[in-house]
Amino acid sequence: MTKDNTGPDNGNKWGETPDEDGKSKAAEDHASSEFALPELIAGLERLDRVYANEAVPPSLGELQAQLIAASERHRRRMLREWLLFWLISLFLLGFSLLAITSAPPLYWMVQGLIPIAGIIALVMRLGRKGRGEWR
């Protein structure tokens, strides 16, 4: 249960009762579990009420028109991406066929480096995600 309170910056900011532990912490938790939460929920419900008009969904026709416009944009973007992919691919394909014939050591070295680079990128990404950073 005490693990519940180990926030990332714990200890630095929460300086009020630094050497409390175990029981007193749990007691404080219990007492304060009533503090702020009901207010929060009531406040957010009031917020919903005040913005009830904005939350009314648009008509089906409007939504459909929006979807059509968006799917058209999407289709165009995909087409552009596809063309770009093919263009780059043709160059790459040409280069690799050329490399296999004229410079095999270079070709195989590059082929070995690609998965290694991919794994490094993956590990870096997972590391960032695991620490939960997004800045």
Binding site: T6, G7, P8, N10, W14, F35, A36, L40, G130
Partner: peptide, 22 residues
Amino acid sequence: GIPEGTAKSRAAYGLRQLREEL
């Protein structure tokens, strides 16, 4: 897209911070 434990500590820390602010 974060581990369960991180979600837990974030929620707890968020609540604590809300109380501090109040």
